[in-house]
Nucleic acid binder design. Structure first.
Length: 601
RNA sequence: GACUCCAUAGCUCAGCUGGAUAGAGCAACAGCCUUCUAAGCUGUGGGUCGUUGGUUCGAAUCCAACUGGAGUCGCCA
C-alpha cells in the first residue's frame, strides 16, 4: 500500500498503479509515464480521467471492458478513491473528500510549496543584451520578462541561477551615435536637456541615419549608376564613422573618452528602466571586453581537426553533414566574427561559473546562429555543450505592423511603463477603494498594477509565437490580466485580516462543494505546473494557471460564504485555510513571473 | 530559390507526448451588490481548427503537399 506523499504525486501513483494493473490483468508491460491522465470535461464527474483505448490491443478486449477491470484494480489498490465512473473507454476517478481535505492540510503546511530542493547545479541565464546606441523598446521588454521569469523559475526548481547580460557596447553603431553627437550635439548632455541618457543617444543615432540618408540621396544624384550600398560606403559621414571605429579599435584616447562618456549616460538610462521593471543581473559582460575572445578556441578546433583553414587563410567549420552550411569562424585577415566572440564568451562563462546549464534569451531571428554556435561547441567537445538552450521568442508587432524607428512607430519601454502606471492610477481612482492610502502607497500600488499588467500581457503568449501588442488592450485591467489576479489576492488578504482568528485545523470529515473541490485539485497541481513551465521554458503555462486559479477562487468566493455567522466553525477553518493557501500560491506564482501583489486595491 | 517558425470565434490568445460535445478574455447583449473588495460572478450569441489528402478505433494535435504570413540564408552584429 502506497502512502500519499509529495515525493510521489497522485498522478504518478495513478500512472504506476494503472501500469501495474495492465501488467497483472493482461501480462503486458507498460511504462507508467506512458499512462495518459486527463481532466474530465465539465459534464462528467471525477478528478482525473484515464483513457483505456491504448491498452485495447495488448489486452485484446474492448476499451469499456478494460476500463471496468482496471477501475476495479485501482479501487482495490488505492482506498482513497471514492468512485470510478466508466464512460466508454474512460475511467473517471474521484478521490474522497477526506483525501482532498488531507491533501490540502499537507500543502498548507508545506513551506515554499511547489519548489524543489537545491540540486547543486548552476544555471546561467543571459537576457536583455542590448546595444548601447538605442533606448530599450517593446522587443527588449519581451526578452527581459522572459529572461527574468525563466531565471526565477529555474531557481525555484533548485538551480543556483546566475543572471547575466552582455552589452553590445562597441562597433559601428555606437560610433554613429558618437559622431552625430559630436557634429550636431553642441555639447548636449542628459543633465542639460533632461532626456534620459539612453534616449539621448538614441536621438543621435536617428540623426545619423537621417544625415546618412540625405548624403546618400545627394551622392546618387551625382552618380546615378551607384547602388545604395556603394553610395553608403562613399558618403563622407559613413567614412567618418568608419574612421572613428578604427580610432576606437586602435585605442585612441580621445575617442575612447567620448565613448566612455556616452555609454555611461546610456547605462544610467538603462539602469533607471531596469529599476522600474525589477530587472537585475548578477554580472554584466561587455562586448568591448569579449570581442577579441574566441581565437584560442578556434585554434583548439583546428588542432582537433573539427575546423579547417581554407586556402584563403580563413577558418571555417563544415556543418553540411547535419543540414547546416559552412560557416566562417575567423576572417582571412585573422580577425574574429560575431560567432567567434560567442564561442569565447561561452568559454568565459564556463570559467566564471562552471555552469550545468546555460540559457540564451534571444529573438528568433538568431535561431540559425545558435544552431551553428551549439554545433561548434559540441564538436569542440566542450563539457557544457549539451546543456545549452536558446530560448527563442517571436517578434512583437503592433496592430499596424512592425515597429520602425525610422517611421517613429517604435514603442519605447519607458513610455509604455509610464502609460501603464497612468492607466492603473485612473482605474484605481474610478473605483475609489484606497482613499486611506498615502501618496507613496498610491504610487507603489500604481507601480505594482501597471508593471504587473504589462509583464502579464506579454508573458501570457507562448514565446515561440510572434505576438501583436495592442496598446489599447494592453492597458485593459479586467479578464485574463495581472490586475484580475492581483485583485483576487487583495480580496483574500482582506478576508484573512477580517477573520481575526488564529488559523486552526479542520476536520477531514467535512464534505466538499464542487467549487471547493475544484480549487483543492487546482492547488494540488501547482508543482506539476511549475515543472511544465520549467521544462518547456514557457512562462505562459504559469500565467494560464495563475489566471485559472484566481478565476476558480472567485467562483468559490461568490458561492461559499466564509465569515458569515451561520457558517459552522469547522467549515470556516477549512475555507480560511483554502483561501490562505490560494493566496500563497498566487503570490508565489506571480512572483516567479516578476509580478508583485498588493494587499489592498 | 533553400531552410526554419506560425495559421483555432469579429479581435487577442489557450488547447500537454493523438482521446469524450474545441476553450478563455476582449468586444455585443441580458442579469446579480441590506451580508467576506462588483478590477468580481452568472447567462446568451459567435467556429468548415488555412486548404486537400494520408496514418487509425479516434486528428485542432502526427505525416505529406499546397496557400497565406514572418524570419534566416554576410569574412554584419
Amino acid at each position: 500500500m502506497c502512502k500519499t506523499s509529495f515525493s510521489m504525486s497522485i498522478t504518478q501513483l495513478l500512472q504506476q498503479h494503472t501500469a501495474a494493473a495492465v501488467q497483472q490483468l493482461y501480462g503486458a508491460t507498460v511504462e507508467p509515464r506512458a499512462v495518459v491522465i486527463n481532466e474530465p470535461p465539465e459534464q462528467f464527474t471525477g478528478d482525473f480521467s484515464l483513457p483505456m483505448f491504448a491498452f485495447s490491443k495488448i489486452a485484446r478486449k474492448a476499451p469499456p471492458v478494460i476500463a471496468a477491470e482496471v477501475a476495479a484494480y485501482l479501487q482495490n489498490a488505492l482506498p482513497s478513491i471514492s468512485h470510478c465512473e466508466i464512460v466508454q473507454g474512460f475511467i473517471n476517478i474521484s478521490f474522497s473528500d477526506a483525501f482532498w481535505l488531507e491533501t490540502l492540510q499537507t500543502i498548507s503546511q508545506t513551506p515554499n510549496y511547489g519548489s524543489q530542493p537545491a540540486k547543486n547545479e548552476v544555471a546561467v541565464v543571459e537576457y536583455c543584451s542590448p546595444n548601447t546606441n538605442k533606448a530599450l523598446h517593446l522587443g527588449h521588454l519581451r526578452n527581459m520578462f522572459l529572461g527574468h521569469a525563466i531565471a526565477e523559475i529555474l531557481a525555484f526548481n533548485g538551480y543556483e541561477v546566475k543572471k547575466v547580460t552582455i552589452y553590445n557596447d562597441r562597433g559601428i553603431a555606437i560610433c554613429k551615435s558618437m559622431l552625430a553627437w559630436l557634429k550636431f550635439g553642441e555639447g548636449e548632455t542628459p543633465a542639460t536637456n533632461g532626456l534620459k541618457g539612453d534616449h539621448l543617444i538614441d536621438k543621435y543615432y536617428v540623426l545619423f541615419g537621417n544625415e546618412l540618408k540625405r548624403q546618400v540621396a545627394e551622392y546618387k544624384a551625382q552618380h546615378p549608376e551607384a547602388s545604395n550600398d556603394e553610395a553608403e560606403k562613399q558618403v563622407p559621414i559613413m567614412q567618418e564613422a568608419n574612421a572613428m571605429l578604427e580610432r576606437w579599435e586602435a585605442g585612441d584616447p580621445d575617442t575612447v573618452a567620448i565613448w566612455k562618456q556616452l555609454n555611461g549616460w546610456v547605462y544610467d538610462g538603462f539602469n533607471a528602466t531596469f529599476e522600474q521593471l525589477g530587472i537585475h543581473f548578477d554580472r554584466n559582460y561587455y562586448e568591448s571586453n569579449t570581442y577579441l575572445l574566441g581565437k584560442d578556441i578556434v585554434q583548439k578546433g583546428l588542432n582537433l581537426g573539427v575546423f579547417q583553414r581554407e586556402t584563403d587563410n580563413s577558418v571555417q567549420i563544415d556543418l553540411t553533414d547535419i543540414g547546416l552550411d559552412k560557416k566562417v569562424l575567423l576572417r582571412r585577415n585573422g580577425t574574429s566574427v560575431y560567432i567567434t566572440q560567442d564561442l569565447g564568451t561561452a568559454e568565459l562563462r564556463y570559467e566564471d561559473y562552471q555552469m550545468n546549464k546555460m540559457i540564451y534569451v534571444v529573438g528568433n531571428e538568431q535561431d540559425y546562429h545558435f544552431k551553428v554556435l551549439f554545433a561548434c561547441l559540441e564538436r569542440l567537445q566542450r563539457p557544457y555543450a549539451k546543456q545549452l538552450y536558446h530560448l527563442s521568442y517571436g517578434m512583437v508587432e503592433l496592430p499596424t505592423g512592425k515597429m520602425k524607428s525610422r517611421e517613429g512607430t517604435t514603442v519605447f519601454a519607458d513610455d509604455l511603463i509610464a502609460q501603464m502606471q497612468h492607466e492603473a492610477a485612473q482605474q484605481t481612482a474610478e473605483r475609489g477603494k484606497v482613499q486611506s492610502f498615502s501618496e507613496q502607497e498610491l504610487a507603489n500600488l500604481y507601480h505594482t498594477l501597471g508593471i504587473g499588467a504589462l509583464k502579464f500581457f506579454i508573458l501570457r503568449v507562448n514565446p515561440q509565437k510572434n505576438m501583436i501588442f495592442n496598446p489599447k488592450e494592453s492597458i485593459e485591467l479586467t479578464g485574463f490580466t495581472a490586475p484580475f489576479i492581483q485583485y483576487t489576492y487583495a480580496r483574500i488578504y482582506s478576508l484573512l485580516q477580517k477573520a481575526s482568528e488564529q488559523e486552526s485545523n479542520y476536520s477531514t470529515q467535512l464534505s466538499l462543494s464542487k467549487e471547493e473541490r475544484k480549487l483543492v485539485v487546482l492547488i494540488y497541481k501547482y508543482p506539476a505546473i511549475i515543472d511544465d513551465t520549467a521544462t518547456q521554458y514557457d512562462p505562459s503555462v504559469l500565467t494560464a494557471y495563475c489566471y485559472d486559479l484566481a478565476r476558480t477562487y472567485n467562483k468559490f468566493y461568490t458561492e461559499c460564504p466564509i465569515l458569515r455567522s451561520d457558517v459552522p466553525a469547522e467549515q470556516r477553518h477549512f475555507r480560511l485555510i483554502l483561501s490562505r493557501t490560494t493566496a500563497d500560491i498566487i503570490r508565489s506564482g506571480l512572483h516567479l513571473l516578476g509580478i508583485d501583489v498588493p494587499m489592498q486595491m
